[in-house]
């Protein structure tokens, strides 16, 4: 095997090894590279910043445990902002994992900011049904949720839910949807946000960003937090730097490594083409 072939056929195990070494270095010894705040993240931040204290923010948790590495830091940063601004928070989920994940993330933050469950925030839990569920909440939250929350406790006992009988513009000021698939933010847009005229923003994994950009440009999403980088940006904006800022260094390392391998593969390819031409 000559060099042109060697460069094109590097054993994938070497690639895996280099990736794990480089990512580990970035985690153990962060580079601390500055993170530029993208426009879409700032738009979401500015919108939440503009809400007056006491406004109700609805958080649609439409993702499963596979995406926690990217989406959990986003939710933590956004909830920091919500509680700092003294906004009310209602959580729901069309995905069964969403409200479970939310409970684990929000509970410690609520404790930190002295927020009382039922008064300042409520977790409605998972309900089967997908889009009919969120649509029915625009008519009657009690009926759509069978009148109970994530813990099967009656919603009528919570002051926050007494204030918010329906998912309409009259009662809800902003919707944030964290999603990785269907049903997700496009369903929230089509069945709740657009018909009810409630502004909406999204927290999504980096892979979903290209698909969501048309909605941002059309003004249907007032902002978008893109992947782990977006989480880092939001952490910086809200002044609560955490795991996402360190995590972005891993993406820098991975980008360098992948590009190096792509270059090596292409050098090998060009060498083999030239050799064939000479022959």
């Amino acid at each position: 095997m000559d060099w042109s072939e060697r460069l094109q056929q590097i054993d994938r195990r070497w690639i895996y090894l280099f990736i794990i070494v480089m990512v580990s270095i970035a985690i153990l010894r962060p580079l601390g590279l500055p993170v530029r705040i993208t426009d879409t993240t700032r738009m979401l931040y500015d919108h939440i910043e503009s809400l007056p204290p006491g406004s109700v923010v609805w958080l649609g948790m439409e993702y499963s445990t596979g995406s926690i590495a990217e989406l959990n830091p986003q939710i933590i940063a956004v909830v920091h902002h919500i509680f700092k601004k003294d906004l009310k928070l209602i959580v729901s989920g069309m995905w069964q994992d969403g409200p479970m994940i939310a409970q684990g993330l929000i509970e410690p933050l609520a404790e930190k900011y002295g927020k009382e469950y039922g008064v300042d925030w409520v977790n409605l839990g998972f309900r089967a049904g997908g889009t009919p569920y969120i649509r029915l909440m625009t008519e009657d939250i009690m009926e759509a949720t069978a009148g109970v929350d994530h813990f099967s406790k009656p919603l009528k006992d919570y002051p926050l839910m007494q204030q918010v009988p329906r998912l309409t513009k009259e009662y809800v000021d902003f919707i944030i949807v964290a999603d990785t698939g269907t049903p997700g933010s496009p369903e929230w847009l089509a069945y709740v946000s657009d018909p009810q005229g409630i502004p909406m923003g999204v927290c999504i994994i980096q892979m979903s960003v290209p698909g969501m950009m048309p909605y941002v440009q059309a003004g249907q999403y007032v902002g978008l937090v893109p992947g782990l980088r977006g989480a880092a940006e939001y952490e910086i904006l809200v002044g609560e730097t955490g795991p996402a800022v360190t995590g972005t260094d891993t993406s820098s390392m991975a980008a360098i490594l992948v590009t190096l391998f792509i270059i090596l593969g292409n050098i090998g390819y060009v060498m083999s083409v030239r050799r064939k031409e000479q022959e």
């Binding site: 590279l33 992947g227 972005t248 993406s251």
Partner: peptide, 8 residues
């Protein structure tokens, strides 16, 4: 562009 290294 997504990774901070791009801006660096």
């Amino acid at each position: 562009g997504v990774a901070p290294i791009g801006d660096a």
